[in-house]
Simulated assay, not measured.
Amino acid sequence: MVKRKRTFGVIGLGIFGSTVATELARFGNHVIGVDTNETAVAAIADRISQAMIVDARDDAALREAGITDCDVGLVAMGDDLEASILAVMNLKLIGVPVVWAKARTKTHHRILSKLGVDRVIHPELEVGQHVAQVLNNPLVRDYVSLGNGFHVVNFRVPQSLQGRKLTDLRHMRDYDLRCVGVMRGTEFVGQDGSDCTLQGDDLLLLLGQRKDLCDFGDSL
């Protein structure tokens, strides 16, 4: 089945907004980026489908720019509270079905939530927490939050576990964790219950709650 190309409207083309817009375009999506700053618009014009100088506080301007036809709208500006709120209200007004928005403060977050934003993003906070988790344990290569307290964590196999069978690990017996898989380079070589002998470059993908994952990581 061919994946349907979606159309995204990105409001605000600073570092955060332009990065999201560029990546969405790289994935093959139609991306409309707007900003009041001519320099920001010019800088991204050749990397996305359309880049325009538009004031998102004006719903008529957003309609004219084609934002009405977007499947998702992202309000990527957080410094100007008034502009952010008006942009969200206008995206809702012109009928964009899904709206995400960047927030800088808790108050900003509460206001955006009250306006019905589908997801409020705190890029600096979220990236800071992510970096801290990885720095805290040198064996953690990366992790993904699944919600409801569950995460998938990518552990580098330490020297102490090299040559051990996956079935011999204590992650199921002593911790409430599941091994989603063992990656060896680009090859998937095992998961819970499989007969897999761990090697030095292997990566363990473990699913569980944060405390269990931390306790397991500390035990390595």
Rank of each mutant, 00 (worst) to 15 (best):
R6C: 03
R6S: 06
G9N: 07
V10Q: 04
G12S: 06
L13W: 02
I15P: 02
F16C: 09
T19Y: 00
T19I: 00
A21D: 00
L24E: 02
L24T: 01
A25K: 00
R26W: 00
F27S: 01
I32D: 05
E38D: 14
A40C: 03
A43I: 01
A43Q: 09
A45M: 07
A45V: 10
R47S: 11
Q50K: 14
Q50A: 13
A51C: 10
M52G: 06
M52L: 15
I53S: 01
D55Y: 06
A56W: 00
D59H: 12
L62C: 10
R63P: 00
R63A: 08
E64R: 04
G66D: 11
D69F: 05
C70Q: 06
C70R: 02
V72A: 06
L74K: 01
V75R: 01
V75I: 14
A76W: 04
G78M: 10
A83R: 01
A83C: 01
A87I: 06
M89K: 06
L91C: 12
K92I: 02
L93M: 14
V99D: 05
V99K: 00
V99C: 07
W100F: 13
A103H: 07
A103V: 03
K106M: 08
H108S: 13
G116R: 08
V117C: 11
H122G: 02
E124V: 09
G128I: 05
G128R: 08
H130C: 05
A132T: 14
V134K: 11
N136T: 05
L139Q: 09
D142L: 03
G147F: 09
G147S: 12
G149N: 09
G149C: 06
H151L: 12
V153K: 03
N154S: 15
P158W: 10
L161D: 10
G163M: 14
G163N: 14
R170I: 10
M172N: 14
D176F: 07
D176Q: 14
E187R: 07
F188T: 00
G190F: 12
Q191M: 14
Q191W: 12
C196D: 04
T197W: 08
T197A: 10
D202S: 11
L203F: 00
L203W: 03
L207G: 03
L207D: 03
G208Q: 13
G208H: 12
Q209K: 15
R210E: 15
K211P: 04
D215C: 13
D215Y: 08
